[in-house]
């Protein structure tokens, strides 16, 4: 974590911080639609570099039209402002994000809040049964589908698996 003292080093240059420190700060930004996940866990934070005293943060969208992107961009910019670091946020599409970019921690956090993670077997986050049927192609967000557990009958969101070669 950055201390109050390090924040006081405020300058108009990113050189006052290491790349690791800047990365650590921006990686705490969360997905506004699934606030339990940080952009780092979600795998959409592609890189942080510092060049000529300016930080460059690269992010990639989960889906082409992900409405959370501008929100995430603003939140990263606010983080950089907070540090007093000049910088810019770039969106890069290639290589395309897939659900394999999510960390194991992201899978754990999703299960914890009742969203079935994008594993090969869709497991009901409430009773753990692997039998479910799709109730809707899209759920609470574009990246989720709505499932109904055959065993306990409860509906739940499933973070859809999105993969280059194996996708639907």
């Amino acid at each position: 974590m950055l201390t109050r003292d390090s924040r006081r080093r405020l300058s108009l240059s990113a050189d006052a911080f290491t790349v690791g420190e800047i990365r650590e700060a921006v990686s705490t930004v969360t997905d506004p639609e699934i606030p339990v996940l940080s952009i780092s866990d979600l795998g959409i934070l592609r890189g942080v570099t510092v060049e000529d005293g300016e930080a460059r943060v690269v992010i990639t969208p989960t889906y082409s039209g992900c409405p959370a992107m501008s929100e995430i961009r603003s939140a990263i910019e606010a983080k950089l402002d907070e540090l007093g670091v000049p910088g810019r946020v770039e969106t890069r599409l290639s290589p395309a994000w897939t659900t394999d970019d999510m960390t194991p921690e992201a899978h754990r956090l999703l299960s914890k809040v009742g969203i079935a993670p994008p594993d090969n077997a869709v497991t009901c986050p409430l009773c753990g049964d692997e039998q479910s049927r799709m109730a809707s192609f899209f759920g609470a967000t574009a990246c989720q589908a709505l499932m109904v557990c055959v065993s306990c009958g409860e509906p739940f969101n499933h973070f859809k698996a999105l993969r280059g070669a194996l996708g639907q």
Partner: peptide, 21 residues
Amino acid sequence: DLEIDIALGNIGLDHLGVARA
């Protein structure tokens, strides 16, 4: 119905994202 409403909206959003880029 609601399912189709959400689906068409989200599919439209995918197309819009492609269009913007």
